[in-house]
Write a protein that binds this DNA or RNA. Sequence first.
DNA 1: CAACTAGCTGACCATTAGGTCAACAAGTTT
DNA 2: AAACTTGTTGACCTAATGGTCAGCTAGTTG
Lengths: 216, 216
Amino acid sequence: MKTVRKDLLKRRKSADIRKENLQLILTVAEQRFAEFGYNGTTISSIAEQAKLPKSNILYYFKTKEVLYKEVLSQILKIWMVDMEEMTADQHPREALRHYILLKIKQSRDHSNASRIFASELLHGAPFLREKLQTDLKTQFIKTCQVFREWIAKQWMNPVSPEHLLFMIWSSTQAYADYGLQSSILMGKEELDDDDFETGADLLTHLVLRGCGIKLL
Amino acid sequence: MKTVRKDLLKRRKSADIRKENLQLILTVAEQRFAEFGYNGTTISSIAEQAKLPKSNILYYFKTKEVLYKEVLSQILKIWMVDMEEMTADQHPREALRHYILLKIKQSRDHSNASRIFASELLHGAPFLREKLQTDLKTQFIKTCQVFREWIAKQWMNPVSPEHLLFMIWSSTQAYADYGLQSSILMGKEELDDDDFETGADLLTHLVLRGCGIKLL
DNA sequence: CAACTAGCTGACCATTAGGTCAACAAGTTT
DNA sequence: AAACTTGTTGACCTAATGGTCAGCTAGTTG
């Protein structure tokens, strides 16, 4: 295999090799961690699936913990981006609708990342605590502030910003976390596009109506 | 210790011993599994916390898997009870409000159980799949049917029963699963009674208004 | 109280997992 | 192409973990 590649595609530069392997390992690791959790995932199993020897994984990531943290840090970024887009000058009708849609899409498109994040929280966020207390908290406070301004402008009813945000997070997150349960209960192999759409619609509707936001 | 107990409380009967120890082990195991997951929990750590020798745990539960399954099966029961209470002849206003309240209380009072359940689902429900497909699915279908009848009676808008139920599950469940995250973000040690109440109120409000159920 | 059963436990074992290392191969630089 | 850096890997080590077992003690029963 490798010799073939070498012959066909010339020799790979060191920098490329590094980049490719890092990416490969991170991708595979994300899959495994999502499915089996931190303790349930072995370096060997990652190696096997990546078709690399175990030692090679350890060459790029000194320890399993380092690898896991690397995976995690990428996830938190993804998780926070969408929130930044909501600003006080937007109308909550569009802003919330948009945010909910993005968040549900994320559950579909980055299901592994979402699940790792959830699992981490579930078990007390041992590796993520600090970042939660700093990065995410900052963003959280900002977003709550946006909600408060919307309330001040009487664009929405005075609901608790914190709890509203939790509620949106959990409901959207659920399409990743509990996607399996849902599909089992509905007798499907997997949730389909329609499910994600119905979910997004329902949630948007509940939130907008529940917060007394005019639907236009 | 033991000799003291024996002297003070007479000798314990075999049956009692069995019952007490089983209960003790199950309780401790639930704590550990909730905090560290299946793979992250060692029999030794359970033994240590229960102040029993490891062998004694293995005496009552042949394997770790057996113990875990026993913990799980108790959980699913708890998880399903509340749902049964909703029936078509009740008005959704009271029925849903009541259900949401119970479910959130459950997140508070049985936080460990809730988290184990969540973790199990998150990782593909390896030990629970069957029971989901049978017991829970049956109840799920029943409850969706109740929702449909409410819709037929025009007591609520025609929303997707399945997705509505998912949404209630995830939002209430969140107070157990993400309780830690929430408290970190709000700068508290723990979620307090007030939080649970605010959460329940908000969610109830969103659901009732969002489903067009008259608030009285 | 003798025979029996249930509860208890330390010593032991096999497997596995994370991680090290030394030696070699492949790229890079001068 | 020699010297050097980066990438690769199998063999090896150590610690932990799930689980067994033989022998013990404590309750039960005829």
